[in-house]
Design a protein around this nucleic acid. Structure first.
Lengths: 228, 228
DNA sequence: TTTGTTTTAATTGTTAACAATTTATGTTAA
DNA sequence: TTAACATAAATTGTTAACAATTAAAACAAA
């Protein structure tokens, strides 16, 4: 994807959401964004339209753009979609992964292990999402990969909004077992593991108590004014 | 979805694509669109950004917007995604459809039957797509419904680009059998039928010979200047 | 005719100014 | 103090003008 100003903006917002720096309900003002990313309002508006198409932002006429706050129903639909997509992805992975891919997966597990010992929640969330996206890339279906990118983003939003019982949101043991079944070329087990893993994540979410605190945007995008 | 000028434009373009009036590769000039839909260029630009996010339009810097021309690989990825999503949808349908839903499905089959006798290819394509989207709506998963809307759109593009061996692209017999298994509450058969049906459609596509002819936009959007 | 070059036209990209709307602030009365 | 109202500020929506780039046309040379 090319490095137009609007794409830069979209990527930064998506990163901030998947790191849970940007929380559900946060207002994304046009002026604020155009200042932070030093571009004009036309670019900001295009970027917000794209983010709205990704279901990550709600555009309210005359009011502005807000990070979307998914309902519980939406969250459950979303997890069902993730299961449908990721189970298909893992089937592709078992079929298509070569030695290098499996090595990359093992390396990623090691990274996750390191991060878990640092107790950095933000990093852990990111690493967990990266694991799922690594599988998607190895599966080599660009359509499924793109949809999963959108869905993991929205999952981050949901977990940030409702909270999760488990501190680390992906128990890495499950990741390990998924990789093992891929290495064993055991498609049936791999699919079952992925399905179980996603149901586990969904089950840990504590629907009911929302936490809508938000801060100023300048706190959320610290390094973006250097961008070009 | 609200009736902002850009949404009107997006809907018209999507309709034109799913009816195969707009073919892959067609240039969507900003001036032309803003004239046809009597809105300003800012609206057009936003609409094009949204369509690009839906993967229906390619945005090339300094060149403009073009209806995207999916490759064969992309098409195969897309059909695998459809199978993953529609098989999940049909499971929801079998579980959730009430009597009214099943009546609607039967009514739709009757409509398809009528249209087949008229020999109107454009109408047939539209009706076929509507059948799949009706199932998605009955399944009551908004995430899957939205993704399927995008995928059926892109499927229309692919069939319009590469052509299909069968004149009618959905043999309605298969639709009938899907509805029957829904009415029987037979989830296993319904899933098998949907999977088979989608593989059938994919198998009928004649990859290899492209047909890139396009006409002027004013021929494609005949009734849109009245759209206020 | 065909090829390459220059000139012209058309299209996209960018910016700024202004209008319309919403939000925040301040004031007055109960 | 609270509530309602009027005013001011900030934000979003709209439009037009201009710059930059690309496509088309005209023309000259082989």
């Amino acid at each position: 994807m090319s490095d137009t100003p609007e794409n830069v903006l979209v990527e930064h917002v998506l990163d901030a959401i998947s790191d849970q720096r940007l929380r559900a309900g946060t207002k994304l003002g046009e002026q604020a964004l155009s200042d932070l990313f030093s571009c004009n309002r036309a670019h900001v508006r295009r970027a917000l339209a794209i983010l709205a198409a990704y279901h990550v932002v709600d555009l309210i006429p005359n009011r502005g753009a807000f990070v979307s706050t998914p309902s519980e129903d939406e969250a459950r639909d979303l997890f069902q979609a993730r299961r449908a997509i990721e189970v298909t992805i893992i089937r592709n992975v078992v079929r298509r992964a070569d030695e290098a891919d499996i090595a990359n997966l093992r390396a990623h597990l090691a990274t996750e292990d390191e991060i878990r010992q640092q107790n950095d929640r933000s990093k852990a969330i990111r690493a967990s999402r990266d694991f799922h996206m690594l599988l998607a890339r190895i599966g080599r279906n660009s359509v499924l990969e793109h949809y999963l990118a959108e869905l993991t983003m929205r999952t981050s939003l949901i977990i940030g909004l409702y909270g999760s019982k488990s501190a680390s949101l992906c128990s890495d043991d499950e990741h390990v077992r998924i990789v093992q079944s891929v290495a064993d070329r055991d498609a049936v087990t791999a699919q079952e593991m992925v399905d179980y893993h996603l149901r586990h994540i969904e089950g840990e979410i504590e629907f009911g108590d929302e936490a809508p605190k938000v801060g100023p945007l300048s706190m959320i995008f610290p390094s973006s004014r250097t961008g070009r």
